[in-house]
Structure formats: structure tokens, C-alpha cells
């Protein structure tokens, strides 16, 4: 702690964090406060915001609870599909691939993630559109299959875009898995399925949990995929917010929804941090056995 006795240290530190602090206050705290103030206001007759102090908007939220829970369920379902697709990939990369190939294959999982989101989604519009896969299906006898503008297309787009976010954390946690555990399990007569259930899954749990959080949050706020691949028929919270602010111009109700969204995400992440700390501790204990 020799550093603290030098004069001027504290003030220099304050100077260094000042720009970041001002930015946080100006472009995070202030906008969120404005959002919270608007959420207790009312919609003015021609759209926008009119000052008031009422919980009317939040009460409205409870009456429109069904679309909200539908959205939540849809986001959860798509996160789960993403997990189902990603887990075997992460497992194979972490435990079956050796040496430099591992690095190359992980890089290959990430590269599509670094190309434009809009362009990848556009490519799927071409592939799923009438002249893409449905046409090929037509040749083998499945005529008039509609793929674009269906919930299936939305799920596909989501899995496609968020797969790396799910694969990477699971890969990292499985990478650390001690191979001798699996050999021990096999020597004790456990089949592959039992080994996966009893050894791999518990140790992969922290990675699975991070993957779920990393994927669930952006899916909740998703806007582009439902519009471009779902034809606007499938709805996420992001679409609801965009409509409330841009189309119906009901700013107070939109603000209430956004405020609830932020609170929900903060609670989710806090819960995740608490749970993952417990999982890591449990993992350490089980590896001591």
C-alpha cells in the first residue's frame, strides 16, 4: 500500500475517472431518470408525454400481462433451443478435438459473429424465401412450404446469431474438465449417457448458466430478427418498445415497460451472479471428493 502515501495520488485517480463518470451520468443515469419520470406520466392527446404523477402505466402493464408473459416464454424457449444446439458443439470442441485444431475451430465459431448482423439475417431471408429452400423442397415433393415469416424462421435466426454466445462459455467450462473424471466414471461401469449426466453436466453448469444469461438478455430485446424473418408476426419486448415509441407514440406506457425491462434484467443478472458463485463453490467441493 506504499502507493497511497504519495501525495496527489487520490486527486489524480479522481481526475482519471472523471470523464467516464461524467459520461455515465450524462448518458446513462440521466436518460434512465427521464425514462422513470415519464413512466409515471400520461400520454398527451397527440402522442408523446404529458407530466403527471400516476401509476396508471404500471397498472396498464398488469392488464396487458398476457403478451408480456408470451414474450418471456418465447425468449425462454428460444434460449433453450439455442442451448440444445450449442451444447454438443461445445462438448465436441472441448473434449474431442486436440491441439491447434481446437483454436482454429473455436475461431471458426466466432467469425460469423464478427460479420454484419443485418447481412447474416438478410442471407437467411434469401435462403428461406420462396426461391430458396422451399423451392428445393418442392423438387422432392413438398410443395408450398412456407419458411420465411414463420416462428420457425425466427428461431432459426436466433440460433444462428446467438450460437457463439452459447458455445463459448460452455466450451470454456468443459475445457477445464478433468479427463480423468470421465475415465473414472467409465471404469466404474457408467455408460456414456450416465457419464454425461453425472460428470459432464454438473461441471458444465456454470458455463451453461452464463450462456443462458448472455443469450436470453439480447433475445428479450430483439427487434430485427422478428421483423425480417418473422414478418412482424412474432413479437419480442424490443418490438413492443419500438412500436410504442415510434408508431403509437405512447411514451409513458413505453417508458413503464422499458423501466420494468431494465429492473428485470438487473434482477436477473444479480441472481445469476449469486447462483454462479454457488455453482462454482459446489463444483470445487465436488472436485475435492
Amino acid at each position: 500500500m506504499a502507493q497511497n502515501d504519495r501525495p496527489g495520488r487520490g486527486s489524480r485517480a479522481a481526475l482519471l475517472v472523471l470523464p467516464a463518470t461524467l459520461w455515465y451520468v450524462g448518458f446513462l443515469v440521466a436518460p434512465l431518470i427521464v425514462l422513470a419520470i415519464m413512466s409515471v406520466g400520461v400520454r398527451s392527446p397527440n402522442g408523446g408525454y404529458q407530466p403527471a404523477l400516476t401509476l396508471e402505466q404500471f397498472a396498464n402493464l398488469t392488464t396487458r400481462i398476457t403478451p408480456l408473459t408470451n414474450t418471456l416464454g418465447l425468449a425462454a424457449l428460444n434460449t433453450f433451443i439455442c442451448l440444445l444446439v450449442a451444447f454438443p458443439v461445445a462438448y465436441t470442441l472441448a473434449l474431442k478435438v486436440r491441439g491447434n485444431w481446437k483454436l482454429v475451430l473455436v475461431a471458426l465459431v466466432v467469425i460469423p459473429f464478427w460479420t454484419s448482423f443485418l447481412i447474416r439475417t438478410y442471407a437467411w431471408m434469401t435462403l428461406l424465401g420462396a426461391n430458396g429452400v422451399p423451392r428445393i423442397l418442392g423438387w422432392v415433393g413438398f410443395e408450398d412450404v412456407q419458411l420465411l415469416n414463420t416462428p420457425f424462421a425466427v428461431s432459426l435466426g436466433i440460433v444462428y446469431n446467438y450460437l457463439p454466445l452459447m458455445v463459448l462459455p460452455i466450451f470454456v467450462s468443459l475445457e477445464r474438465l478433468d479427463r480423468s473424471f470421465m475415465e473414472a466414471s467409465r471404469d466404474l461401469g457408467a455408460g456414456p449417457v450416465a457419464t454425461i449426466r453425472q460428470i459432464v453436466l454438473p461441471l458444465a453448469a456454470p458455463g451453461i448458466l452464463s450462456g443462458i444469461v448472455l443469450v436470453f438478455i439480447p433475445i428479450m430485446g430483439e427487434y430485427l430478427i422478428p421483423i425480417l424473418l418473422g414478418g412482424g408476426k412474432t413479437y419480442f419486448l424490443g418490438n413492443a418498445l419500438a412500436d410504442l415509441f415510434l408508431q403509437s407514440r405512447n411514451w409513458p406506457f413505453g417508458s413503464a415497460l422499458a423501466t420494468l425491462f431494465v429492473i428485470g434484467m438487473v434482477v436477473l443478472v444479480a441472481g445469476y451472479l449469486a447462483l454462479s458463485r454457488r455453482l462454482v463453490r459446489a463444483g470445487r467441493e465436488s472436485s475435492l471428493l
Binding site: V17, A20, T21, Y24, F27, L28, V29, A30, P31, L32, V34, L35, M38, Y49, I217, P218, M220, G221, Y223, L237, G238, L241, A242, F245, W251, G254, S255, A258, F261, V262, M265, V266, V269
Partner: peptide, 23 residues
């Protein structure tokens, strides 16, 4: 500072966009 940093990361992009817009 840590709290502000994590909140800045957690808040979904669409909320950042809307909140900045109305602010």
C-alpha cells in the same frame, strides 16, 4: 463505478437507444 459499469453493460441496446432519444 463498478455498479455504473455493469448497469451500462446490462441495459439492453434498445432501452439505451430509446432512453437516449427521449432524454
Amino acid at each position: 463505478m463498478e455498479l455504473l459499469t455493469y448497469v451500462a453493460i446490462i441495459v439492453p441496446g434498445i432501452v439505451i437507444g430509446i432512453a437516449t432519444l427521449i432524454f
